[in-house]
Structures are given as structure tokens and as C-alpha cells.
Design a protein around this nucleic acid. Structure first.
Lengths: 109, 109
DNA sequence: AATCTTTATCGTAATATTGCAATATTAAAT
DNA sequence: ATTTAATATTGCAATATTACGATAAAGATT
């Protein structure tokens, strides 16, 4: 095997898993953090900021985009990638909700 | 290759990526949600609640535990797994922080 | 138009993940 | 002491991910 059995889970569960999976790599966390740090969205130097080869960075960006975490357009020979607030919002909401539920719960461990 | 170059990223970035990676699978999301739903922590029937074979569930539980998202002990022939609030707290904090930073930022896309 | 600069894609090797059958383990129940 | 019931481990096949060199694409610069 090796393929995730997504069809057996709810669409909500798959949606969250898609987002968390996309963030499940330090390079992609670093990309997100860099996008937050820079003032504008134009960040053509993102490759130089990461300890990875250019094709690798490009691939990570693609995965973040596929997951809906970043949006952006190619602008000439530079690029404009931004964080998609909606995706981050979903995650924030999800974990805030879990936290609330955990507070009401009596964990034995 | 195929191995993540963790050594090139900060320990904070790796820490978050470890947590998100562990949640990057719908089965593990489903496990977390089930642990929240059940009243007590004793949830020996978790295998029956998931559309996966017992060894697969066991493996997912192990990964969640390795990532620090759940804690628990074996109690005889049943098991007591709980969510580790600290790990969820870290994630909640992380995304809440990003949300705040994004609000202050002017995204162009 | 030729060159430069930047990002994307292709191809591929190394490694990791997913899933499960078979088996082991471990403690409770009989 | 056996059996039962539940979880863990092992081994393995299928698939996915990670990383990068080589190359392509596409607009900017000269």
C-alpha cells in the first residue's frame, strides 16, 4: 500500500489533514514564517533564505499552494506569494475549538 | 534523497512541523477527535471506530505518541490514551499568533 | 534579438509513509 | 495453567515524499 485511505474519513477530517500535512515539513513552516515576516508580498528572494535548492523550494511552494495555504501569481521574473488567511483561520479555529473542548473534559492521564 | 533536512531549520520550526506532520493524516485527526468525544480516557474500542486494521491503528497511535500529541499507558488488556493538552496548546498558540500577525500585515493577493 | 534572471518542470535516486497479514506480547478471565 | 481479549511488533508490498541536477519557460535588460 502506501496511499492514504481518504475515502473512509469525513471531508472535514480530510480538509484539516490536508492543511496540517502541508505544514508538516520544516521548510514549509519556514516559508510561511518568512511570508509573514516580509513587509510586502513580493518575495523573490525566498530561495536565498532557505537552505534548499531552488527546485526543492519551488516544489514546497507548490505544495503549500495546492493545500490552499498560500495564494499568488507569477509577476514577470519575480513572484508574489501570500499566505491565505482563510486556511490559517481554519486551523486556528480548529485548535481553539479543541482547546475549549479539552478544558471541559477530565483527562485522566 | 527523501529524508527531510531538519538540521537546517530552527528547533521551533522542527517542533511545529513534527506536530503538524503527525496530524497530517485523516486517521490521526479522527483519533484525536474521538479522544475528545469520549468521556473518559479509556477507549479500548478505538480500533472498532476506525476504518482501518488494528495494526494500522496501533501504528497511528504510536506516531501521535511519538509526536507528543497523546500520552497514555497500557492498562491490562485495554489502553488509556489521552490528548496531551500542551501539544494542542502549542499549535493553538502558533496559529493564533500567525493570525494576529496577518491582521497587521497588508497582503496584496 | 541575445542575454540575464527568476521560477517551473522533468527525471530520478534515496528515503519515508501507509496499510495489513502474521505473529508476539501481556494481563485478565476462566 | 489455559484460554481469551486487546494491543504491539515484525515484515513486506505499494505508494508518497524529499531533494536536486538538468532543462525549460518567460518576462526583464541590454
Amino acid at each position: 500500500m502506501g496511499a492514504t485511505k481518504t475515502e473512509h474519513f469525513t471531508s472535514k477530517q480530510n480538509a484539516i489533514a490536508t492543511l496540517t500535512k502541508a505544514l508538516g515539513h520544516p521548510a514549509r513552516i519556514a516559508i510561511i514564517e518568512y511570508l509573514i515576516k516580509v513587509d510586502t508580498c513580493i518575495c523573490g528572494d525566498i530561495v536565498n533564505k532557505l537552505p534548499l535548492a531552488q527546485p526543492t523550494v519551488s516544489q514546497h511552494l507548490k505544495e503549500l499552494k495546492n493545500a490552499g495555504l498560500i495564494k499568488g501569481e507569477i509577476e514577470g521574473n519575480s513572484i508574489c506569494y501570500c499566505i491565505d488567511e482563510k486556511a490559517i483561520g481554519k486551523l486556528q479555529n480548529y485548535f481553539a475549538n479543541i482547546t475549549i473542548k479539552l478544558e471541559k473534559k477530565n483527562n485522566c492521564c
